[in-house]
Amino acid sequence: MKKFLALATVALCCTGCLRENPLVPATAIPARYPTEDLRRFSEAEKAVVRQGVVATLPNPAFAEFRWTKFPKSPAETEYYCGQLNAQVDSGAWVGYRPFIAVIETRDGLARQARLIELSRDRIDVGSVLAQCRQHGLDPFVGFESDGAGVSAAAQQPAR
């Protein structure tokens, strides 16, 4: 019994000794735009971004997005960070992982998108987060979800 109490005491004393290693790094990203200068994508804009991002996936038929807000900026090119859940080559779903894309705008609306980088999995997100941070973006804050099972093919932009 004394050995158990001694072991429990040592374990309690050392609980703060281990280095924290969270699955998702801290999201203290300096905001590039004030909240009032951000907006949600319209459904048509989501379809444009979806089409540009899933074009590079091995199995683009189904993909689920978590959308963050987009700047109301008059710039013709903006960076965008969000999250994507899609199947990999083996057909397995790996869960939501961050991505960064370049969005071409015209008249303040997203007209074209190109994927820059997609995290390999949900744990190895450092490279994508570093690029998001460079542009003052955070794919984990204030997102809205498409919901489960949204078909990327069914959400093509209207022409």
Rank of each mutant, 00 (worst) to 15 (best):
D146F: 01
S119Y: 05
R50V: 02
Q131G: 10
Q155G: 02
A31V: 03
P30C: 02
Q131L: 14
T105N: 03
C81I: 04
P30A: 14
Y96E: 13
F65V: 07
R50D: 00
V54D: 02
G136Y: 04
R50C: 06
F65Y: 03
T27H: 07
N59M: 12
Q134H: 00
M1Q: 05
E20S: 14
R39N: 06
Q87A: 10
F4H: 06
E20T: 11
V141S: 04
F99Y: 15
T27F: 04
R32A: 15
P22F: 09
V48H: 03
I100D: 10
T27A: 12
P34T: 04
L7W: 06
D121L: 05
A75Y: 05
A86S: 15
G16Q: 09
R159G: 11
P58L: 10
R120S: 10
P71K: 07
C14D: 01
E45R: 04
K2F: 08
R50F: 03
V102A: 11
L115G: 03
G91P: 07
A8H: 05
Q134K: 15
H135F: 11
D121A: 09
V94Q: 13
S119K: 10
A86N: 14
L18T: 07
I123G: 02
F4L: 14
G149F: 05
A11E: 03
E117N: 11
K2Y: 08
T68M: 11
L115Y: 04
A148W: 01
G52M: 06
A92T: 11
G142M: 00
E64A: 09
Q156M: 12
D146A: 02
K69N: 10
N85C: 05
P30Q: 13
A8C: 13
L118C: 07
I123M: 13
Q87G: 04
R66I: 04
Y79H: 11
C81M: 05
P98L: 01
D124Q: 13
C13A: 14
V141N: 01
Y79F: 15
A61C: 01
H135S: 12
A130R: 13
K3W: 05
L137W: 03
Q51E: 14
E43Y: 01
Q156E: 09
Q83I: 05
A44H: 06
F99R: 01
E76L: 10
E45S: 07
G82P: 02
A152M: 02
A31D: 13
R40D: 12
T77L: 14
E104I: 02
T68A: 12
A110F: 09
L129C: 03
S90P: 01
R50T: 10
V102G: 04
Q112N: 14
D89R: 14
E45W: 11
K46Q: 15
A148N: 10
S90T: 15
L38N: 12
P60W: 10
R159A: 09
A55D: 11
R120M: 03
C14M: 12
D121T: 08
D37F: 00
P60I: 12
G142D: 15
P25H: 06
L18N: 03
T68P: 07
P74Q: 08
G82A: 08
R122L: 08
L115R: 09
P157G: 02
F65A: 08
A61V: 06
V88K: 15
S127I: 05
Q156L: 09
L84W: 08
L5A: 03
T15C: 14
A8M: 12
P139V: 01
A110S: 07
L23T: 04
F140D: 06
T9G: 09
D146H: 03
T15G: 05
Y80Q: 08
